[in-house]
Design a protein around this nucleic acid. Structure first.
Length: 366
DNA sequence: AAATCGGGGAG
DNA sequence: CTCCCAGATTT
């Protein structure tokens, strides 16, 4: 059995690399709220929030979330709706549902202590290979790889690895590389330093190689191919979906909200009644038909459309024609309820697309 | 392996 | 406009 799968590691000065990297991080690391201590719970929350999400976006969410749910116990026993509301606008909402479920398991099964082995922690909902390594190394000092997009970019350049990082199978190559490279003396700083380097210096386009602490160890830099790495195939374009939605008000001024299904896109979030638009009919026709079938026959939409919104997701685009109307009579749809404007804003988590509609409604109405 | 799942910022 | 971000889960 060979010692290294990667021939680039044969003569690689591992200790020197570790020293340069960790030394740089010690001096240059950003002052971030989840770095104030190594509370495994807070490290965990931050890692979930940071999945596919930028540091600057996460900071205010993290501070509010920890203030509202300071401990495992607090989050485990919190009301689901309040937890979702705290996540409103952050996206990938299954993250927070999985997080609360996992925290409840830690609360009940592990006595409120986040487990410190790869086997146990990776069994928790929403904790995949990256988060497993991140929490173990940062909170517990366990030398496990934490391979995210930053790490794949940095290591692909340092070791001149030309595998397509968009392929799931490539992650294992980088994990193996990190297992060889990682500092056993300070796994936490080693992993964080790689990510920090990717975020601040070894950026996707025009990396600041002249400021890089590991430039001398970097194969791509010496070969002049930093702009060609990492190799990443691009994803195919998004599909478009035509929708129509209505802000419906009853005689007492309350507004109709509908709770989305517990799985799929924007699961468990609240929205204004919304219908898909058939290719051969108008938004207004399909919307009125939908509302009469699912809510009440007694609905009247205003003649002039309120707005038209385009909302872009990762894999699709919503084109929403927005209407305003009045509604009366009993409501058929069991997932619906009437709420005041204050309740809508304070108690119900809405996707950003529907927040845009609400904002438009309020602007029109004042 | 490919698709799904949000939203925003950078170039 | 395109890319991509401290990815995980489902199909």
């Amino acid at each position: 059995m060979k010692k290294f799968d990667l021939p680039q590691l044969e003569d690689f000065p591992i200790e020197s690399f570790q020293q340069d990297l960790i030394g740089w991080f010690t001096e240059e690391m950003r002052d971030l709220p989840w770095r104030k201590d190594q509370d495994p719970y807070k490290v965990w929350v931050s890692e979930i929030m940071l999945q596919q999400t930028r540091v600057d976006t996460v900071i205010p969410y993290f501070n509010r979330f920890i203030e509202q749910f300071p401990t495992i116990e607090a989050l485990a026993t919190a009301d689901e709706e309040k937890v979702l509301k705290a996540w409103e606008g952050l996206g990938y909402y299954s993250r927070v549902r999985n997080l609360q479920a996992a925290v409840q398991e830690v609360h009940e099964t592990y006595g409120g202590v986040v487990p410190n082995t790869p086997e146990e922690i990776s069994r928790l909902k929403g904790v995949g290979p990256y988060t497993t390594g991140a929490v173990l190394s940062i909170a517990y000092g366990v030398p496990e790889p934490a391979v995210d997009g930053n790490v794949m970019r940095v290591i692909s350049r340092v070791l001149s690895i030309w595998d397509d990082i968009a392929k799931p199978s490539s992650r294992k190559i980088f994990e193996q590389a990190i297992r060889e490279l990682i500092s056993h003396k300070n796994p936490s700083y080693f992993n964080q330093a790689l990510m920090e380097l990717g975020a601040l210096v070894c950026t996707p386009t025009s990396p600041s190689c002249l400021l890089c602490p590991v430039r001398e160890h970097c194969h791509a830099f010496h070969e002049g191919v930093t702009s060609e790495l990492p190799v990443k195939t691009k994803k195919k374009s998004t599909k478009r979906v035509r929708l129509a939605s209505a802000i419906l008000v009853d005689s007492s001024g309350k507004i109709v909200l509908h709770k989305r299904p517990s799985s799929g896109l924007l699961a468990n979030l609240w929205e204004f009644p919304m219908a898909e638009v058939n290719a051969f009919s108008t938004p207004r026709e399909d919307l009125v038909r939908f509302i009469q079938e699912h809510y009440s026959e007694q609905v009247e939409l205003e003649k002039v459309q309120l707005d038209k919104i385009e909302h872009i997701f990762s894999h699709l685009v919503w084109e929403v024609d927005v209407f305003v109307g009045t509604i009366s009579g009993s409501i058929k749809e069991p997932g619906a309820r009437f709420v005041t404007a204050d309740e809508l804003e304070g108690d119900y988590a809405l996707p950003v697309s529907h927040q845009k509609m609400w904002k438009s409604f309020k602007a029109e109405r004042k």
